[in-house]
Design a protein around this nucleic acid. Structure first.
Lengths: 237, 237
DNA sequence: CGCAGAATTGAGAAATATCAAAATGTGTGG
DNA sequence: CCACACATTTTGATATTTCTCAATTCTGCG
């Protein structure tokens, strides 16, 4: 994680930036003075579970995974983030970071320290309100995820993961999912093992639902995937 | 769900009430005029997944479970709530309730409609800030739960559930967990089946870790339970 | 007392994880 | 640009865990 000369927020072309979109203009000045910027190489950590809570992070440019470590160092991926997203903030109740994040590709990270961010929150009720809505919504997603992990079969989970990746990162010009993930990372997202992921990807491949080319994956039929992923909903009668 | 004559907030003896503890005094007047109160009998729903989002609920007195419905109508319990707790609010982004709640014992419920609650939020930045922290924290808990469901074995999950119930509801004068739950409800909390719960409770019973007496459960050794529940953490090396 | 739903228990079935071997892919230094 | 070493992926066989089913016993309630 190499320190960079901070970009000027007012000139930043990151249209989706959470702060730019939720702060009044005069407070962007404050952000601009306060923030620091970092360069993170693919695979490198942005922060780790257990680190002291220092502040809040934003993806200026790039992609990252947010995860927790569990049994046998097996990770559980909760969320993929992309340019403009906020990460690493869960209120100030806990002293230590409850999750880890690391870069999925070379990325630029903005950072605002704890005191400054709290100052911004206390003076931007709209931001606080929006963040409240954001977390309420993240909680909703997390609950859906928890139920899925508890009740879905492994095929359903793998199909759900592919659709999730598509939703977050979309596809590149060749039509492949626009992110490079190992089988292990797909497994960590799905809550299963890399071998199971490999088997079901092969199966989907044979059935013409996806095409795999090394780590690249092209979804040929999101409809069929959705059917697999929601198969369990039909069982509701 | 029978409508009741609303209690006067200023005279309410519910010391843990979320609103009383997070609103300025003059806005409690507003709450007092706005809210309605209901009586819910044990087992009855408070609201259901899919219902139109009408407002926010609080437990004035009693206990309830918050859950989602999944495969084969099997429920997944996320959270137990008690007197003073807020429930049923996840921001206004979705039109419909994303979860269900029903009473675990006869309870009194307070309700504030959507518009009024939003009015309160917009005028009580402290409440909004605290709610933001609350949801950030609930998200943290939900992530721990999701990881547990994905990675823990069934014994570990059952032990974890018992500790969770103890943490929320504590014990009655006889030392039993102060709530009455079916094996199915324990299973829905643990993400497994009623038969598995039954088997592991018998096992814990034989090992002297708990005593079961019909639906009543007394924890004899929270330490041993914690060891079982955190066994997987040791595997971290 | 008797009935209906809940809980217990054991046995068998199904799903998933683990292990291992072969194949494939990746990066590095010559 | 190639060759070698190392890591990842694939695939099949096996082991383990968990679920399902069914028979039996309990429990609560009219």
């Amino acid at each position: 994680m190499k320190k960079l000369k901070p970009t000027n927020c007012h000139e930043c072309e990151q249209a989706d930036c959470y702060m730019l979109n939720h702060c009044s203009a005069d407070w962007i000045d404050f952000v601009n003075k306060s923030k620091s910027c970092f360069q993170v190489k693919k695979g490198e950590p942005i922060f780790n579970e257990g680190d002291k809570v220092e502040g809040v992070y934003f993806i200026q440019e790039g992609k990252a995974k947010v995860f927790k470590v569990g049994v046998n160092h097996k990770e559980q991926i909760f969320r993929f983030v992309k340019s403009g997203d906020i990460l690493g903030f869960k209120g100030w109740e806990r002293e230590k970071m409850s999750i880890s994040a690391s870069a999925l590709e070379n990325s630029k990270i903005c950072f605002i320290n704890r005191n400054d961010f709290d100052e911004i929150l206390k003076n931007n009720s709209k931001l606080t309100y929006d963040l409240m809505s954001f977390y309420a919504n993240e909680l909703y997603k997390s609950e859906v995820k928890a139920r899925n992990l508890a009740q879905m079969s492994v095929v359903e989970l793998v199909a759900t993961s592919l659709l999730y990746i598509y939703k977050v990162y979309g596809e590149n010009k060749e039509g492949y999912l626009d992110v490079c993930l190992s089988r292990q990372e797909l497994a960590s997202l799905s809550g299963t093992t890399k071998e199971q992921v490999s088997k079901y990807l092969s199966e989907f491949n044979e059935e013409g639902i996806i095409i795999t080319d090394k780590r690249a994956i092209k979804l040929l039929s999101t409809n069929k995937l959705r059917k697999i992923s929601e198969k369990y909903l039909e069982k509701l009668k």
